[in-house]
């Protein structure tokens, strides 16, 4: 009887972790961002334990994927390592802040920040339609000093792409913030890292995503070492979720190659919007800023998700598809 109960508990945790890994890799936000809301909202796991388990599983997926990427030589190890100074420092500060927040009974802050982080990372994810190479900017002094040059072979474009990074200091600044969020919430915060490299340093998307993945492992190792001493890692829970998220993330990458219908990602983004809104409302509810029943919270989240997704889908799905068709038609006419 006891054995049966253990297996059911484990399977529940395992299934949720696999879903988190799948959704995380399909949306490109990483397993942790989905795992923490799932565990806290639906399994009643304390957010500190969920964050600890999430950091551990983030190391596993990052190291697993990085070992494959390093052979493709798309990851820029110099840029990644340089920015790691900021992410690891940020992660230390973030983990210490998390400890302060939890020991002072302010866990609601973590929920609210988590909700905001998910909701704000949906927009760039919705925008990201295709991989393209940014317009080159003039190299600045940091490009020279920190040797931010690189090149990789792009399979889709069938050519060697040469690139260089600019504004190293701005990248560092954003990375410190990314590291801080990673330590505070127990996630990889890959979306923020990509923003730092893609927007601030003007690197190609492919380089940003693979280099960000390389950095996530080191950042998460820093955070989880401190989490270990604070007691936010429940070994059995971390063990089951690490296995689950790894399985989910690995199947996610396989599925991603086969998905031909790009519309599917709107469904995943809608799920994320719902989770983000739920976290935000739960945080506000915990602090008694708002007092509404759980059922109303769900209803509000669903309505919110419907509105936001309609706007985003119209803005980035329908309009962009129309534009693409128009350019394609014009291109065809010229040919």
């Amino acid at each position: 009887m006891v054995l049966l109960r253990t297996i059911i508990c484990c399977i529940e945790l395992l299934v949720f972790s696999i879903i988190a890994g799948l959704l995380g890799s399909l949306t490109g936000l990483g397993g942790g961002t989905v795992l923490v809301p799932l565990l806290t909202l639906f399994l009643g796991i304390p957010i500190a334990y969920a964050a600890g388990a999430s950091l551990i599983s983030t190391i596993a997926t990052s190291s697993g994927a990085a070992s494959a990427y390093i052979r493709d030589r798309i990851t820029n190890v110099r840029i990644g390592m340089g920015l790691e100074i900021a992410t690891t420092t940020g992660s230390i500060v973030g983990s210490l802040t998390a400890n302060y927040v939890y020991t002072h009974g302010l866990a609601w802050i973590v929920y609210v920040v988590f909700g905001i982080v998910i909701l704000t990372s949906i927009i760039p994810t919705a925008q990201r339609g295709k991989y393209e190479i940014p317009d080159p900017r003039k190299p600045d002094w940091t490009t020279r000093v920190f040797k931010l040059y690189g090149s990789y072979y792009d399979d889709a474009l069938k050519m060697e792409v040469k690139y260089w990074g600019v504004r190293w200091w701005l990248g560092e600044l954003i990375m410190f913030f990314a590291g801080f969020i990673s330590g505070l919430l127990g996630i990889g915060s890959g979306a923020l890292k990509v923003l730092g490299m893609d927007w601030a340093m003007n690197l190609p998307m492919k380089v940003s995503t693979t280099t960000s993945n390389f950095m996530i492992g080191v950042t998460a190792a820093t955070g989880s070492a401190l989490y270990w001493y604070f007691g936010y890692i429940q070994p059995m829970m971390a063990a089951v979720t690490a296995i689950g998220v790894l399985i989910g993330a690995m199947s996610g990458t396989k599925i991603l190659v086969r998905i031909t219908n790009k519309q599917v990602r709107w469904v995943f983004l809608a799920i994320l919007a719902f989770l983000g809104m739920e976290m935000l409302l739960k945080g506000l509810y915990l602090d008694r800023i708002i007092t509404i029943t759980v059922a109303t919270q769900y209803l509000l989240s669903i309505i919110f998700t419907a509105i936001v997704m309609t706007i985003l889908y119209y803005r980035y799905g329908v309009l962009m598809a129309k534009n693409e068709k128009r350019t394609a038609a014009r291109g065809g006419g010229n040919a």
């Binding site: 334990y49 001493y229 936010y232 070994p235």
Partner: peptide, 11 residues
């Protein structure tokens, strides 16, 4: 050990 709020953590 399996309880969601288990006190058996790394501390």
């Amino acid at each position: 050990i399996m309880s969601p709020t288990s006190p058996i953590n790394t501390t």
